[in-house]
Amino acid sequence: MSLHDDAVLVLKGYDGSGSADADQAGLRQVYLDHLAEHPDGMWKACGAGHVTASALVVDPERGRVLLTLHKKLRMWLQMGGHCEPGDTTLAAAALREATEESGIPGLALLPGGPVRLDRHPIPSPCHWHLDVQYAALAPAGSTERISEESLDLRWFAYDEVAAVADGSVVRLLERTRALLGRSG
């Protein structure tokens, strides 16, 4: 199965109904329509926009998240980025990005698939990132290591995130915490 096919299956199975955002079902359809119209819609080269994969690294035992100060955007964000030809699934792409950008081996995605969807505009020549957002659990005692894509990495207590990150990251954290509360 191709990464494109996996993304379609993941999105068809995505149920954001537990999310506080009413727009999740609409975004899901936007993503599916994009992939139906663009066979290259998974790749950075697709000028109409492309699917990306990200993961919020969480340490639920300590009530904190690891954010990266993105080198280009100069914003505190979750780990994530473009899919690569070696990625076999969206989940694998999100886990690869989280591992590369955090420097933490042994991350495990929160079961159940994506946590949220977030579409955001990006500068030319492309138009949109259609981000499929996961949550990754950090192993106990893990130590982060800054990658070349980051200016900084920092753990933030849950209640500190709204002061440093944009609304998309805050909504991702809120949804992740709700899912963690259900599984724990």
Rank of each mutant, 00 (worst) to 15 (best):
L3D: 02
L3E: 02
L9S: 09
L11V: 00
A22R: 11
Q24G: 02
Q29L: 09
L32F: 10
H34Y: 06
L35D: 08
E37V: 00
M42Q: 08
W43N: 03
W43T: 03
A45F: 06
G47C: 10
A48L: 05
G49A: 07
H50Y: 15
A55E: 00
L56I: 04
L56E: 00
V58M: 06
E61P: 05
E61L: 14
L66H: 06
L66W: 10
L67A: 10
H70L: 00
K72R: 15
M75D: 09
W76I: 00
M79W: 00
G80D: 05
H82S: 12
G86D: 14
A92F: 05
A94Y: 01
A94V: 11
R96M: 01
E97D: 07
A98M: 05
E101T: 12
G103I: 06
G103R: 06
G103C: 03
G103D: 05
A108S: 14
V115L: 03
R116V: 09
L117E: 01
R119D: 04
S124F: 14
P125M: 09
H127Y: 13
L130F: 12
Y134I: 10
A135K: 02
A136M: 06
P139L: 06
S142D: 05
R145C: 08
S147G: 12
L151Y: 06
L153S: 09
R154I: 05
R154W: 08
W155V: 10
F156W: 12
F156S: 09
E160M: 11
V161S: 07
A162H: 12
A163R: 13
V164S: 10
A165I: 08
A165V: 06
D166L: 12
G167L: 15
V169L: 08
V170R: 11
E174R: 14
R175M: 13
R175W: 03
L180H: 11
R182I: 13
R182N: 13
S183M: 15
